[in-house]
Amino acid sequence: MKTKNPGLALFSFIVYLFLLGPLLIIAVTSFEPGTVLKFPPTGFSLKWYQNIFDVEMFMSTFKTSIIVSLLGNVIAILLGVPAAYALNRVTFRGKDTLNAVFLSPLLIPGIVLGFTLLKYVVITFHFPIYTSLLIGHTIIMLPFIIRVIGSSLANFDFAVEEAALSLGSSRLATFFKVVLPNIKSGIIASVLLAFLESFNNVDISLFMTGPGVSTLPIQMLTYVENYFDPTIAAISVLLMLITAVFMFVIERLLGLTYFTKQ
């Protein structure tokens, strides 16, 4: 069915302008040569991009962010894939409850999670801040792993697994030889989505800062509160590029319809 409704089309156009305009404006202002962000910019310069690499704090927090997101992702995969498999492979009593528990980090306010981690894991149980940061990020990545891999497994015909078993393959070997290759794209997509979620996270990282430990978004937040030069705009452009690349890969693997079918 087609609607030729010019009013609706115009309205949608304006909404898209509202959604994407600000990001475009950031991108444009990142080339500002002056020390104060202006729109439109007064000229063209890449010096604020250069500045990112000159400010030690950006580089070190970027490194922390990458390490935490990657390592957290590995842990989340190790914890999440077996759980997603168990939750989708068989029906058992209490399955819905367990599923809800695994997805609950999505519903509990991030700021609350961050605070309780600080109060109990760091202060009461004396976990190092860096470890706690990693734990916090693993917690918020788990639901993405469970959900995306879960939907891959839900579409997987488990008769295929039984076929391998009946042909003499052991359970573990079957998982690696038959199940894993067929949910590969789900795993990659979930890793990318979880990575973005973790890399952009503010709510948890906010509480997990300490001597020499902070993530890039927190560093950006602190920077914005004190300076108004185009460095943040330049970093934003780089982050948006990473997002665009990730999205392209996810689209290739799952199709964009994945996003509308949650």
């Binding site: 898209y16 959604l19 994407l20 600000p22 990001l23 404006i25 950031i26 202002t29 962000l37 729109f39 989505l193 973005l196 890399f199 952009n200 503010v202 978004p217 950006m220 937040l221 914005v224 108004f228 943040i232 705009a233 970093i235 934003s236 982050l239 948006m240 997002t243 665009a244 990730f246 999205m247 689209e251 964009l256 996003f259 509308t260």
Partner: peptide, 21 residues
């Protein structure tokens, strides 16, 4: 849809910052 999802996957710091400008 891709254009709508893109901001969703972009850092909230970046997006809030854009409104400061």
């Amino acid at each position: 849809l891709a254009l709508a999802i893109f901001p969703l996957l972009t850092s909230s710091v970046v997006r809030s910052f854009s409104w400061m400008i």
